[in-house]
């Protein structure tokens, strides 16, 4: 019943929905501007660290924390590291966390929800009971346990990661890949705990759709069940999925910040906005710039993502046309 609001008719399926939605999105200036800001920020995070005069982890201990200056536009932190470089490098990590974790949640949630919704009956009952059980786990405990078990160099997952990495690079055994693994791990863990709502939403959609004539027709001509689920049902539930996805990204980015505050998220010397904000909050009375710049970046990004999500909701929700 929590998915009630999302159980809406899929609207007219096919091209017209997408084109319609795009038209409406473009006319929603707030969402459109937010989208542009996001793209600019994203590009900046990708390219600025490549061009910046300082590396994100280059220390100058003798310099220490200094306010913004001509040499360091956003000042430096306690270790004399350039905050400008760290903020943009941190943006990469934050965006990656947001997108990858959401991706994980999307894949698991959509598959889980669609399968449960389509097959119904006992399958549905068991699958949804599992979701209920996971819902009662405080997600923090899950993340901690996963981290404790697997985010170390002895975990079997790390060996799997090394093996996969070995396909691309020669020195996969180099421990300098460990932080990469640990970040991937935070993504994975966050994704693992955020797919539950997605599964419920998709299940609701699929249940509403599965009795529709076009599905009956597909079933009648002998299309395999999984094909029906993924070719016909999921695309028709795309609206709510996209909306929820867009709204999950900022949620995940905030959660990453929360975990960083608890010391369970991204780890130094890497940076992420969450980590920078958490660090800045501790010394805000002494070095306010360490809080202000990353906070502004994080807040602007979250705002833009929310605007975009709202815009998408308006664009993809056919009822919005009435307004």
């Amino acid at each position: 019943m929590t998915a009630r609001a999302e159980v809406v008719p899929g609207g007219a399926p096919g091209r017209s929905l997408g084109r319609d939605a795009w038209r409406r999105l473009r006319h929603n200036r707030a969402a459109f501007v937010a989208g542009i800001v996001l793209v600019v920020l994203l590009l900046a995070c990708i390219f600025v660290p490549m061009l910046a005069p300082y590396a994100y982890d280059r220390q100058d201990l003798a310099l220490g924390a200094t306010p913004p200056s001509a040499a360091h536009w956003m000042g430096t932190d306690f270790h004399g590291r350039d905050l400008f470089a760290r903020v943009f490098f941190g943006g990469r990590v934050s965006f990656a966390v947001g997108f990858i974790a959401t991706g994980v949640a999307l894949v698991i949630g959509v598959t889980w929800g669609a399968v449960a919704g389509y097959f119904g009956g006992r399958v549905d009952a068991v699958m949804m009971r599992i979701v209920d059980i996971l819902f009662t786990f405080p997600f923090l405990i899950l993340v901690i346990l996963l981290k404790v078990f697997f985010a170390n160099s002895r975990s079997p997952l790390y060996h799997a990661f090394q093996a996969t990495l070995g396909l691309f690079v020669k020195d996969a055994k180099d421990p300098s890949y460990l932080p990469l693994f640990q970040i991937f791990f935070v993504f994975g863990a966050l994704g693992l705990v955020s797919w539950l709502t997605m599964a419920r939403i998709v299940r609701g959609q699929v249940i509403a759709l599965r009795e529709q004539p076009f599905i009956e027709a597909a079933r009648a001509i002998g299309v395999r069940p999984l094909a029906i689920v993924f070719r016909h049902l999921v695309p028709n539930a795309a609206g709510p999925i996209i909306v929820y996805t867009a709204l999950t990204v900022p949620q995940i980015m905030l959660t990453e910040a929360f975990l960083s505050f608890l010391g369970l998220g991204t780890e130094e010397p890497l940076s992420s906005w969450g980590l920078l904000v958490a660090g800045g909050a501790e010394t805000m009375a002494l070095y306010p710039w360490l809080l202000v710049f990353p906070s502004v970046m994080l807040a602007v990004t979250l705002l833009c993502l929310n605007f975009l999500g709202d815009g998408l909701r308006d664009a993809l929700d056919p009822r919005a046309r009435k307004a």
Binding site: V292, V300, C304
Partner: peptide, 24 residues
């Protein structure tokens, strides 16, 4: 329709005002 775009500015201003408070 464009008014909603100002949400963002309001937020930036809010953070901008709250931030330097730390420097008090």
């Amino acid at each position: 329709t464009a008014r909603r775009a100002r949400h963002g500015w309001a937020a930036i201003c809010a953070v901008g005002v709250l931030g330097p408070l730390g420097a008090l």
